[in-house]
Design a protein around this nucleic acid. Structure first.
Lengths: 315, 315
DNA sequence: GATGCTTACGATACCCGTAAAGATA
DNA sequence: TATCTTTACGGGTATCGTAAGCATC
């Protein structure tokens, strides 16, 4: 048993059991891949893959259980690399943060300059993606820190920490009749076409829920990935917008008006998500601490340690 | 980086950094060991061992952290083997139980015949050792299940489950004046020389504590590892004995009398201990369930999963 | 001087990639 | 037929063990 074999097993599962693709992904020949799999199966004395003739279709039961362990081993192998870097270059390296558009654009700008000042030699990669991709990037180890408002819980291999709380707000073109409605009500909003976030993004679920609870069916004429797009179409008169309040910039959005409505849709919490068992460099902990001073290295490590590393639900 | 290198790193730490010994332990040449270490250090770019000239003295800081991860990896590598066996020979294999004398002799006999009947093809190894050795055998993976009354908690890498509760009792030669003292008191006991367990064994701590709390200093004339020895010397008239009550057999110990004293020393709980992260074959879970029906596989797996796999206190 | 680590070197085994052959869709 | 996997084979590399050279105690 060697690491190359384990990498091949993992990659095979990721590549839908296409060994040619595995060979490409691991920069080696397909024949070598095939042989490695055969060798490992021979050594262990168990078929790991379900075959139909020569084609691989999936994992057998033992293969599935083995893959779990293999992923832990390879995760730890990666951790060794990070760990060693931590000692050889204490304040150098790479930190990959992956966040939704809203967070990348309106929350993280408060943190990143400060981080860069503290760790000028750390190459900071700021990815932007939807919640699902954030989860998969964290799980695969491509990203170190995830920031999003939804879809991060319920993933047992991730641990989440509250970052900050925010509210939705309504935006309207200047002079819109809603400006005079006080307090705002869901009924009042529902009289106008609404432009807001896509489903599964930036608290959209809360908006839908609030309307549903009130027995109102709003007319969502358009949904977008980010507030900038929403603002653009509200300016064009397509309707009123519902966005995260921090996305409104009074200095720049001069043609729009922000109407507070914290009472209508409830509070949203944005979370920082980490992959359990993924080694974090010290500067990664510092990044998180800059986001929220309560989340210091000791606190986070304690939390990561007190939670399941091997979850029974995964089996 | 390969598994042999990792095994060498771990073994070096276990062998007090004597590479010759490592070579022997791993059935390879010492020169190969030396080269593997050098290669790994070169690959990682970090010194893992503290050297004085050519001799290795210990681990560096990164070496220590690395060793932790290495041990996890090798544990998982072992788990792969167990896992595969679980599928290839479902009810065959080996189960190593390590217990103190008292448990091996007086508690497990109720369980083992039943287990053997259920799993005739499983080779059951029943080791006997003191609490400290039990811990180290569990940690090293040499044993699957540990059974003891003390010293198993406070080891973060182990998880413990209550097995059963028992009490101490006093044994005296037939016709001894203590037979007529009712109820028994610590003062009454302290008037005679006492023979009991060694320190750190079979609830000895509770005995000492009870006397100390009462401000009494008993005369312990002899201490032994097991109740059989204690009984022998009590029969010889060396004093009265304090043993675990289940160690008394009225049919065989005809020259002795058992005096109950549950009120004097309090209850003792014997625990089953498992190494977190160590893969257990299904028959291992069945063994535990035979010990205590409450401890079924689902319960145990849930507990093992809900607890720290990587403990911050170890760092 | 005994023990223990490193380096050198030759034999072996392992790994990789090309190429050909067989299987599957 | 095109795609994919297995098997065969040759070149290269890594690993291993012996032996010699040094450092440490």
């Amino acid at each position: 048993m060697n690491f190359q074999q384990l990498r091949i097993i993992r990659e095979a599962a990721r590549c839908n059991f296409n060994l040619t693709e595995v060979g490409n992904a691991l920069f080696t020949s397909q024949s070598g891949v095939s042989k490695h799999i055969k060798d490992l199966e021979d050594e262990l004395g168990v078929e790991l893959f379900v075959r139909k003739g020569k084609r691989l279709l999936g994992l057998t039961d033992p293969g599935r259980e083995l893959l779990e362990i293999v992923e832990r081993i390879l995760l730890d192998a990666n951790n060794i690399k990070s760990l060693v870097e931590q000692y050889s270059k204490r304040d150098e390296g790479q930190l990959t943060v992956i966040a939704t558009h809203t967070q990348a654009r309106y929350a993280l700008p408060k943190v990143i300059p400060e981080f860069k000042k503290a760790f000028p030699k750390v190459h900071l990669k700021l990815h932007q993606a939807g919640p699902n991709e954030i989860v998969s990037m964290l799980l695969s180890g491509e990203a170190d820190i995830g920031v999003a408002t939804e879809a991060l819980h319920d993933v047992t291999k991730l641990d989440t920490f509250p970052y900050y709380t925010w509210y939705h707000a309504v935006i309207v073109p200047a002079g819109h009749p809603l400006e005079k409605v006080q307090p705002l009500t869901l009924q009042a909003l529902a009289e106008y076409p609404i432009v807001t976030y896509h489903e599964g993004l930036t608290g959209r679920a809360k908006i839908d829920q609030s309307f549903a609870d009130a027995g109102i069916t709003p007319e969502i004429v358009m949904s977008a990935l980010d507030a900038d797009v929403i603002k653009t179409y509200v300016e064009l008169g397509m309707g009123i917008g519902i966005i995260a309040s921090m996305a409104f910039n009074p200095a720049k959005d001069t043609d729009l008006r922000l109407l507070k409505c914290e009472h209508l849709f409830g509070a949203n919490t944005t979370y920082i998500a980490l992959r359990r068992g993924h080694y974090l460099r010290s500067f990664a902990y510092r990044f998180i601490e800059l986001c929220s001073p309560k989340l210091d290295e000791v606190t986070i490590r304690a939390r990561l340690a007190t939670h399941p590393a091997i979850n029974i639900a995964d089996r």
